[in-house]
Write a protein that binds this DNA or RNA. Sequence first.
DNA 1: AGAAAATAGTTTACGCGGAAACTAAATAGG
DNA 2: CCTATTTAGTTTCCGCGTAAACTATTTTCT
Lengths: 158, 158
Amino acid sequence: MTDTMAETTDETAIQMGEIQNSLGFLLRVAQIQTFERFFESLGSYGLKPGEFTVLWVIGLNPGMRQGTIARHLSIKPAHMTKLVGRLIKQGFVAREQHTEDRRAVRISLTEQGRDFVAENKGAFLMQNAHERNQLSPEEMETLIGLLQKLTGRDTHAS
Amino acid sequence: MTDTMAETTDETAIQMGEIQNSLGFLLRVAQIQTFERFFESLGSYGLKPGEFTVLWVIGLNPGMRQGTIARHLSIKPAHMTKLVGRLIKQGFVAREQHTEDRRAVRISLTEQGRDFVAENKGAFLMQNAHERNQLSPEEMETLIGLLQKLTGRDTHAS
DNA sequence: AGAAAATAGTTTACGCGGAAACTAAATAGG
DNA sequence: CCTATTTAGTTTCCGCGTAAACTATTTTCT
């Protein structure tokens, strides 16, 4: 599962240098791994992490504008359109015209969407369960806190 | 159905729930931001983070097989082919046939490639300089250590 | 040796996500 | 009012990264 030490070709003596400590590099690898884990639990439904996140937030904010949700999730408008389109096609989300501002689009979950979120909430949040990775609960907490701070998403940001 | 049915027009009052603490979500946002920072410094050269990383590792391991490097960087073979192709087109990398195994491809940096890496090494590694983000040096160190552990890439396990 | 399997890398087809151009609706300015 | 600007979302086009199929070479097995 982890790096196969058995494979002892001379080629494996690779030098990585400071890249090993590069934030960008580590974030990339971490995300790849997280992505893979996600598919182990939710992949069977053909849903991607981003899609589940959107579903989740729509569920918490029914009737909100899709643009607002996109902005808060750092999703680009163009991408949001397609994302919502997919979710609608799957029957999880419904669009409704904003009555006051007819440019705006309100979105909310369908019954099916609510059920889906409720069912898979656990699996999704399991991502940071320490059983699934190398970190202790405290370490995971620290990591998440630091990432929140790094991204300016900690609740008590300056 | 629930009490959250109140339609929110206020943008700031968005609910995110446990997603805020989701490792996957935070990794995604962090990576987007890191990506943006990268372009501020190296974007002018039209080089992507992944490309610079590959360039870097080739520089540290001249003449190594491209597949070996790919594996160590969690890059898929197909992608590696295109990556190397681009780097060759830019004049940074050179291919040479492996003499013993004619299937294998050895790659190394050109003079231009070495110069480029030397020039931009500082800018690339600056990513984790605390001046560029919200974290103190110690916090950054902790974060990097935790990410290494999470990804199983902490070579010098504490 | 010769067929079969394994290995290295490439090509092809596809989906995701982004930038920019576009449409539609609301607001501002005269 | 009526044009001009802004805002919300969509569409179009493009590049990245992946899976799967493919080519070429090496190894294994009999």
